[in-house]
C-alpha cells in the first residue's frame, strides 16, 4: 500500500513538472503567433533600425531577419514540445488511483479545492496506513511475548466470549407446563393461556385486566420476546398464526412494550436459582399495569402527561409513574 502512495507522490511531481513544461510551451507558441501577427514589412523598418545598431548590417529589408526569428521561435517550440512529451511518457496511468477509489475523483472537482476535502482525505489515508503499520508491528511484537492467563487455546477462548447459552433450555416439557400453570394461578385479574407450542417454544397470551394483552414467546422458561397490544387489536393473522412482529397502533402500548423488554433484560440478570424466576417477576410486573387507565401518577398526581397515562412501573416497586416523572 505504502509504495502505491509513493508512486502516487512521484506521479504528482511529474505532473507539476509537466504543468510547468506546458506553460513554457504555451508561452513560446504565443511568441510565434505574436511574431506572425506583427507581420513582416511595416515593422521590419523600425525593427531593422533598432536592431541595426546591435547586429550587423547583414540583415536587409528582404525579411531575412524575420525568417531568422521565426525559425528561432519554432525551434524553441519544438524543444518545449519534446520536453512535455517526455514528461507525459514518464507518467504512469495516474487517472485510476486504486487506493483512493471514487474519492480520487474529488481531486478533479474545482470547488473541492476550496474546502480541501481531497487533501484531507489523502492525509487521513496516510495516517490510517501508518496506524495500520504500527498495529501490525505491535501485534507481531506482542505475539512473541504472549502472556497466558489460562490454559485454553486461542480458538477456545474466542468461543467462550459468546453469551452463555440459556441454562434451562433442557427442562422437560411437562415441568415447563406445570410451572406455567402454577404461575397463572398466582396472578390476579390476569389470565394466561398458551396459544401455540412447538417443541421448546411456547407462545403465551396474557390478558392483563381490562387494559391490554401481552404475547410472550418462551423458549423453555426463557423469555425471548414480549409484545404488548390493545384489547381490540388483532393478534391472530389471517393464516391462523400469531402475529409476533407488528407493533401496536397505540403509542402507549408501544412504549410499554419497550419498558417490558427492558424489564426482561433486568429480570434475566437475576442469578436466582429457580429457573422460573425471571418469568415470574415479569408477570407480576406486567400485572401491575391493570390500573394503567385508572391510576394517576404517584409523583405528580395527574393522569396525563403529554397525552399519555403513567406508563412507567419500577422494576422493584411497580407503582404508576409518568416517563418524565421518573426520578
Amino acid at each position: 500500500m505504502s509504495d502505491v502512495m509513493a508512486q502516487a507522490k512521484l506521479n504528482m511531481n511529474f505532473l507539476s513538472q509537466a504543468i510547468t513544461g506546458t506553460q513554457q510551451l504555451r508561452s513560446t507558441v504565443t511568441n510565434v503567433f505574436n511574431l506572425l501577427c506583427e507581420g513582416v514589412k511595416p515593422d521590419e523598418e523600425e525593427d531593422g533600425k533598432g536592431d541595426d545598431a546591435e547586429t550587423a548590417v547583414t540583415v536587409g529589408k528582404d525579411g531575412k531577419k524575420f525568417l531568422q526569428r521565426f525559425q528561432e521561435y519554432l525551434e524553441a517550440v519544438n524543444k518545449d514540445y519534446n520536453e512535455v512529451e517526455k514528461m507525459c511518457n514518464n507518467m504512469t496511468s495516474m487517472t485510476d488511483l486504486p487506493v483512493l477509489g471514487p474519492s480520487g475523483a474529488l481531486s478533479l472537482d474545482s470547488i473541492a479545492d476550496k474546502n480541501s476535502t481531497y487533501r484531507d482525505a489523502v492525509l487521513t489515508y496516510q495516517w490510517n496506513n501508518r496506524l495500520h503499520e504500527y498495529a501490525q508491528i505491535a501485534t507481531s511484537l506482542m505475539l512473541t511475548n504472549q502472556i497466558k492467563r489460562s490454559q485454553l487455546q486461542a480458538g477456545a477462548g474466542a468461543k467462550r466470549r459468546r453469551a452463555a447459552p440459556p441454562k434451562f433450555t433442557n427442562l422437560p416439557s411437562q415441568t415447563v407446563d406445570n410451572t406455567l400453570q402454577t404461575l397463572s394461578r398466582q396472578l390476579s385479574d390476569t389470565t394466561m393461556k398458551i396459544l401455540q407450542a412447538s417443541g421448546d417454544t411456547r407462545i403465551v397470551h396474557l390478558a392483563v385486566g381490562r387494559v391490554f394483552v401481552v404475547i410472550i414467546v418462551l423458549r423453555s422458561l426463557t423469555i425471548e420476546k414480549v409484545l404488548v397490544k390493545g384489547l381490540d387489536e388483532n393478534i391472530i393473522l389471517e393464516n391462523n398464526t400469531v402475529d409476533l412482529f407488528s407493533d401496536s397502533q397505540y403509542l402507549c402500548m408501544q412504549k410499554i412494550t419497550d419498558h417490558a423488554m427492558s424489564a426482561v433484560l433486568q429480570y434475566s440478570t437475576y442469578q436466582a436459582s429457580p429457573p422460573e424466576f425471571p418469568l415470574k417477576y415479569l408477570l407480576y410486573w406486567l400485572q401491575s399495569y391493570k390500573s394503567l387507565f385508572t391510576d394517576a401518577c404517584t409523583v405528580c398526581g395527574k393522569h396525563l402527561d403529554n397525552g399519555l397515562p403513567p406508563l412507567w412501573r419500577d422494576f422493584k416497586i411497580p407503582v404508576p409513574c409518568h416517563d418524565s416523572c421518573r426520578a
Binding site: 381490562r210 387494559v211 391490554f212 402507549c252 387507565f293 385508572t294 397525552g307
Partner: peptide
C-alpha cells in the same frame, strides 16, 4: 381515547383532558 374500550376505566384521563 383509542387504547381503552371501557368508558369507566379511562374517564379520569378523559375528564382531565
Amino acid at each position: 381515547y383509542a387504547p381503552c374500550v371501557y368508558a369507566r376505566d379511562c374517564w379520569g384521563m378523559m375528564s382531565e383532558m
